[in-house]
């Protein structure tokens, strides 16, 4: 396993060489004392601003209903404040959030695996096979990156209806695959194309078939890029509202993922904020775990995605 892999050489971004540590610190340690203090103060305020919204909601989601609707969350910082897990128990039991959580998994897992597998096949062909029209085709794929999803809804909704699969999980798997492919192909092609040529040449000389070279060489060597892509796609689909809303929303209430359910709750709960916030936090739990656990790869996925719309 390659430890601390270098960032992939991504197109669209200037090369990123990390400066050596000591020099950086030396550069940062400059300046008079008050300006250092001002720097820390500004950063502290910025961090607070970014944390405050989420923190407020988290606190509120553990407060009793009557408190939430009558006082601000910050009043719960006093020692006499009451907390409860009843809101979480309620939304899981009453509002179908448990089912929606499973639905979200059912949607997200295949919609992550399929496009990345399909993209890795294509990226391999783009990187290590020669065929007429290769560059033109790749540029078309890059162009498809920015197509707004709205442009595709009407025809695809009709297609699904004609095929008789409207409202099934299959529809979102297929749609997410189509929508996710341009970025996945783009990222993987750039990474695979940057792998050393000699490796593939000597494998061919040793009589390895392209399929063998793909499974034994290209895929294992691309693990950093694939990992980034998996996390990126996973978060993207888990957090997706629009696609699930369009293809599942109207026709199959039993298949709705968390995001659509929470959006619906926000229209119908009638000011029962405590439930809405508990529900929202449940949708956020998994992405936050993934994010904090795999931040390094996530950042790489994003950095690679700078060209994506």
């Amino acid at each position: 396993m390659s430890f601390t892999p270098q960032p992939p050489p991504l197109v669209g971004l200037p090369a990123q060489n990390v400066r050596s540590g000591p020099l950086r610190l030396a550069a940062g340690r400059r300046g008079p004392r008050w300006s250092r203090l001002a720097l820390h103060a500004i950063l502290a305020i910025l961090m607070l601003i970014w944390l405050l919204p989420t923190l407020g909601m988290l606190v509120n989601s553990f407060r009793p209903a009557a408190d939430v609707s009558r006082t601000g969350w910050w009043t719960a910082l006093s020692p006499t404040a009451q907390f409860t897990v009843e809101n979480y128990a309620h939304v899981l039991a009453q509002n179908g959030l448990g089912q929606a959580f499973i639905n979200s998994l059912f949607i997200t897992i295949p919609a992550t695996i399929i496009p990345i597998a399909v993209a890795s096949f294509a990226a391999y062909a783009f990187s290590w096979m020669t065929f007429p029209g290769r560059d033109v085709l790749f540029i078309i794929v890059v162009g498809l990156l920015v197509i707004p999803l709205q442009t595709t809804f009407v025809p695809i909704l009709r297609l699904f209806k004609d095929l008789g699969i409207a409202g099934q999980f299959l529809t979102v798997w297929l749609a997410h695959t189509g929508y996710g492919l341009p970025f996945a192909i783009f990222l993987l092609r750039n990474y695979m194309g940057g792998l050393p040529r000699e490796v593939f040449e000597s494998a061919a000389i040793d009589g390895a078939s392209p399929a063998t070279a793909f499974f034994r060489l290209a895929l294992p060597m691309s693990v950093p890029a694939i990992a980034a892509l998996v996390i990126f796609q996973f978060l993207f689909i888990w957090n997706d509202f629009l696609v699930a809303f369009v293809y599942l929303g109207a026709s199959s209430p039993q298949n709705l993922p968390l995001t659509v359910l929470v959006a619906n709750l926000s229209n119908s709960l009638g000011g029962e904020w405590q439930y809405l916030m508990a529900a929202a936090f449940i949708t956020m739990a998994l992405p936050l775990i993934v994010f904090f656990g795999l931040q390094r790869y996530f950042v790489r996925g994003i950095t690679g995605g700078a060209v994506k719309g």
Partner: peptide, 24 residues
């Protein structure tokens, strides 16, 4: 740490962010 804090909202769904900010 500072970067993580600024970055974390990106891992949250827009729907979740909407709920969070409704209370802001």
């Amino acid at each position: 740490i500072a970067k993580s804090i600024i970055f974390v909202p990106l891992a949250i769904s827009f729907v979740g962010a909407g709920v969070i900010w409704k209370f802001m």
